[in-house]
């Protein structure tokens, strides 16, 4: 398999430093406190946030700050007939923890003692880069729920195939056997919230890949910002209409 062809294009026609097409929609679920769908190419993720609300388990209630929980799962239809993963999947559990951990660092949890925030992430369509798409979707859903946060969060992955660092791998490239590094950044504070990889890679390659993934994060953050602004614009418009009617 040739992942980067002679003219420097990838299998789907992108250049190595390009991310897939991004789409997002906010407040997609009426019953949740906050919700969003986020798409990176053919990967589509739905996130719903409940809370901050009173902690359900009194014994585990943290008196000093809010508890952030995440449940990540893949819909049975998400990968077509490729493979089916249940909720008890250990990989899903691990991803849930990573998402909760990443976003908890960005939430001003100390403002919300004795509460709990539940984030539910469901992958509707899987085409690589689900973990990063889930973080981006969850961030939008948290913002939609009005949870106080320090900064905007954006996540993006990058890999290394055919001697080239590739941004935002899709499913085919993911199966290429090369290393993949997922990065989540607080783009305003320039803090790394998450940096994960399952493979061994040399220092030079690692630095190149992380640099590329960080650039990807910044591009995603820019998109998230415009999405949020558009959403807020729509909200204020709706409020002003409501006021004028009242």
């Amino acid at each position: 398999m040739e992942y980067v062809n002679t003219v420097g294009l990838r299998l789907d026609g992108r250049r190595p430093n390009e991310i897939r097409q991004l789409r997002a929609e906010m407040s997609t679920l009426a019953s949740a406190d906050g919700s969003a769908t986020f798409e990176m190419g053919n990967t589509k993720v739905l996130a719903a946030v409940y809370g901050p609300r009173e902690a359900s388990n009194r014994a585990q209630t943290d008196t000093s700050k809010a508890t952030v929980r995440c449940e990540y799962s893949m819909a049975a239809f998400s990968s077509g007939e490729r493979r089916r993963r249940g909720k008890s999947d250990r990989r899903a559990t691990e991803t849930s923890l990573a998402i909760a951990n990443t976003l908890e660092q960005n939430i001003l949890t100390e403002l919300l003692p004795r509460t709990q925030i539940d984030i539910y992430v469901q992958v509707l369509q899987a085409d690589g880069g689900m973990r990063c798409a889930a973080i981006n979707a969850a961030f939008l859903a948290l913002a939609d729920a009005g949870v106080p946060m320090r900064d905007s969060v954006a996540a993006c992955a990058a890999g290394y195939l055919d001697g080239t660092a590739l941004l935002d791998l899709n499913y085919t490239e993911d199966g290429g056997g090369g290393p993949e590094v997922a990065v989540a950044l607080q783009t305003g504070l320039h803090q790394v919230l998450m940096l994960q990889t399952d493979s061994k890679l040399s220092m030079e390659v690692f630095e190149e890949v992380v640099e590329l993934a960080s650039n990807g994060c910044r591009a995603v953050a820019e998109f998230l910002r415009t999405t949020l602004l558009a959403h807020v614009g729509r909200l204020s418009l709706a409020t002003s209409i409501a006021k004028s009617e009242a």
């Binding site: 053919n42 077509g80 085919t172």
Partner: peptide, 30 residues
């Protein structure tokens, strides 16, 4: 511009899969 390529293929085990792939069309090709 985005195009999507859809095709079916048979896996080694003989299952028929539907594969959907993105196909980006560009303007920077000379």
């Amino acid at each position: 511009m985005l195009q999507s390529k859809t095709f079916v293929k048979k896996t080694k085990r003989g299952k028929i899969l539907k594969v959907v792939r993105e196909h980006y069309l560009r303007e920077d090709i000379y």
